[in-house]
Design a protein around this nucleic acid. Structure first.
Length: 607
RNA sequence: GGACCUGUGGUGCAGCCUGGAGUGCACGCCGGCCUGUCAAGCCGGAGGUCGCGGGUUCAAAUCCCGUCAGGUCCGCCA
């Protein structure tokens, strides 16, 4: 279910005097009220539905972007679905027994004196009333019709309001909106990029930005102090429900700031957007360290809308005879009220845990103790646990009779991640369910794992400033070093990430050295940025978050395609525009390109 | 690159497991009736390459293989 836009505090369309209806119409359909009764009005729109009562009476529901109004027309008028018409007549109160409480205009109707067909329509390929879930393939092929639906109108208007809210916030905070090139040059590391052949320089290519990262750091060097951009970004990676080739970020950067300053700037914009769309004040934006997020929720993007936090059992089972619990980490979830879960379901949960990488899953049903005092545990492994261990487990998980405890033991990170995933699968509310629990995940490790050559991999990007307390371990124990980078998360979705950047050459050289990047390599890959940094780079940091994801969350949609006007399918196709498509030989020649087709499936290599 | 799900008149579904005539439901569409409906109602009608190709079988929407398209996910996305 998608969430209604906040109609009460804001009409669907922002109304200023300049935004009043003009031209062919005096009013918008969805805004007519009983207070307008008696006026002669003209409205324009699409025929949503008609109800005919013979030769001299028919009801036509006329729809525009504001809603629907019922028009009473002569039955002879040939008005079919999706005809574009203009209706002029007197707006009148409906008879007292003919009100329609289901629509905002239900107290009035328009007695049509003149009906003009501005444009006829073939019968649409699918109904726009939202009563049936039309196949997405069909919706995308006729996207221009799909966008006419109430749902898509609402979603894209929410998007427009989010953009407007962000711009208000940015302007209020003194950030300057500056555009950066789309036809540009590769960004160091990161996602696969789209390349655009140059016509004037045959054989050379532009690269579309996966983000304006380099550009905005250069703007800091240039002294713009605070920059933002609602930036289109392109990444040639496989598509997902929350990922499209092309997406939109709020990108910002500021000079002479700390992490806290960046967080406050970003918070101001997302909270402004959230308030504007929902009319509600979101809960306080909390900050948790990456470590704490892993321990409590088993993920770096926790959903705080529900509890069921992961509990540490290491102390409760310390010294236990039970072999499975002799592990670096023993953690558990308490699933309230699921103590009656059947054996088949428990086996499925165990399989799921194993599929997620756990060695196994221990389940314990919490039941009332004998004589109604205390609690006891029912479990295939209960016999391996002493009475003291059992009561310690119950105490640690705060479990009560009727609850189910799920425990996993093993290496800490994997154990937490498995339980974190089970937590989501057992308890996560639907996307559309408020509130909007924003949080910052901070002190993210600077590196994540090692590459083939044994060098650490930058978790964010190679210009991320390490946590100052960890600098002495940079070379000796790099994987333990935290960074001054941070993620913004809402309701289990990662909205974006950012960091304080390295602005001094000595620190940058140290990082490159740890990453195994030579001076020559650094110069060739990041040349002009490093060059710029030689001429006085201010300390700076910034952030970027996905507007598609933010809008989807606020609209209660699980898929960002629902908040993008013309999205692509999972295979990267636009079913309406038939893109991508082949170029003509002439176009290819002009770009100096020749196509080498991959061998057909099943063909022998080299044939 | 991989796993799973889906594909049946214009739309949404059922039928598939357990093979037997393109069978059914709802909406829409076309025509007729109808002066207070609002998912209007009533009557009648049209509309099909069961995604595509191959195989098994006396017989395939149904079983098998392949393929295409759409979706969810893994990989990938600093």
């Amino acid at each position: 279910m998608s969430r209604p836009i906040n109609e009460a505090s804001h009409p669907v369309v922002q109304r200023s005097e300049a935004a009043r209806p003009r031209g062919l119409r005096t009013d918008y359909c969805g805004e007519l009220r009983s207070s307008d009764a008696g006026r002669t009005v003209s409205v324009c729109g699409w025929v949503a539905r008609r109800r005919e009562h013979g030769e001299h009476l028919a009801f036509v529901d006329l729809r525009d972007h504001t809603g629907i109004v019922q028009c009473v027309v002569d039955g002879a008028a040939d008005l079919r679905s999706e005809f574009v018409i203009r209706v002029t007549g007197e707006l009148r109160l409906r008879p007292a027994d003919k009100l329609n409480a289901a629509i905002p205009t239900g107290e009035v109707e328009l007695g049509a004196d003149v009906v003009e067909v501005l444009s006829a329509s073939e019968a649409p390929p699918f109904a726009l009333d939202g009563r049936a879930d039309t196949d997405e393939q069909v919706r995308l092929r006729y996207r221009y019709l799909d966008l006419r639906s109430e749902r898509m109108q609402r979603n894209l208007r929410i998007r427009a309001r989010v953009n407007a809210a962000i711009r208000r916030s940015m302007d209020r905070q003194g950030l300057a909106e500056i555009e950066t090139p789309l036809l540009w040059t590769p960004t160091p590391e990161g996602a696969r990029e789209f390349a655009i052949p140059s016509r004037l320089q045959i054989g050379s290519f532009y690269v579309l930005p996966q983000s304006p990262q380099i550009a905005k750091q250069l703007l800091m060097v240039s002294g713009f102090d605070r920059y933002f951009q609602i930036a289109r970004c392109m990444r040639d990676e496989d598509l997902r429900a929350d990922r499209q080739f092309e997406f939109t970020q709020l990108d910002l950067e500021a000079s002479f700031v700390t992490q806290e300053d960046v967080w406050e700037m970003v918070e101001d914009s997302v909270l402004e957007a959230t308030r504007d769309v929902t009319g509600e004040e979101p809960p306080e934006v909390v900050r948790v360290t990456w470590d704490e997020a892993l321990d409590r929720w088993g993920t770096d993007k926790p959903d705080l809308r529900f509890g069921m936090e992961i509990v540490r059992l290491e102390q409760a089972v310390a010294g236990s005879e039970f072999n499975a619990f002799k592990a670096p980490a023993v953690r558990a979830l308490c699933v309230q009220g699921e103590g009656a879960l059947g054996r088949g379901r428990l086996d499925a949960l165990t399989d799921r845990a194993k599929k997620l990488g756990a060695a196994g899953l221990v389940w314990l049903r919490v039941v009332a103790g004998e004589q109604g005092t205390g609690v006891a545990l029912e479990s295939p492994v209960a016999k391996f646990l002493s009475a003291g261990e059992q009561s310690a487990i119950v105490k640690a998980t705060e479990a009560e009779p009727g609850d189910l405890i799920l425990a996993v033991a093993g290496e800490r990170q994997l154990t937490c991640q498995v339980l974190g995933q089970l937590r989501l699968e057992l308890g996560q509310p639907p996307v559309s369910e408020p509130p909007y629990r924003y949080l910052w995940v901070t002190e993210i490790p600077l590196f994540e794992g090692l590459d083939e050559a044994g060098n650490p991999l930058a978790a964010h990007h190679p210009f991320t400033m390490p946590h100052l307390d960890d600098l002495d371990r940079l070379e000796s124990d790099p994987l333990s070093v935290r960074s001054q980078s941070y993620d913004l998360v809402v309701n289990g979705w990662e909205l974006g990430s950012g960091s304080i950047r390295i602005h001094r050459a000595d620190m940058q050289r140290r990082i490159f050295s740890v990453l195994g990047i030579s001076d020559e390599e650094a110069e060739s890959r990041f040349g002009f940025l490093l060059g710029a940094f030689r001429y006085g780079a201010p300390p700076h940091g910034g952030f970027a978050y996905g507007i598609d994801r933010l809008v989807a969350i606020l609209a209660g949609e699980e898929n960002i395609r629902e908040v993008i006007a013309f999205p692509k399918t999972q295979s990267g196709a636009d079913l309406m525009a038939s893109s991508p498509r082949e170029l003509s030989d002439r176009q290819l020649a002009e770009l100096g390109l020749r196509i080498i087709k991959p061998p057909a499936r099943g063909a022998q290599p080299g044939s």
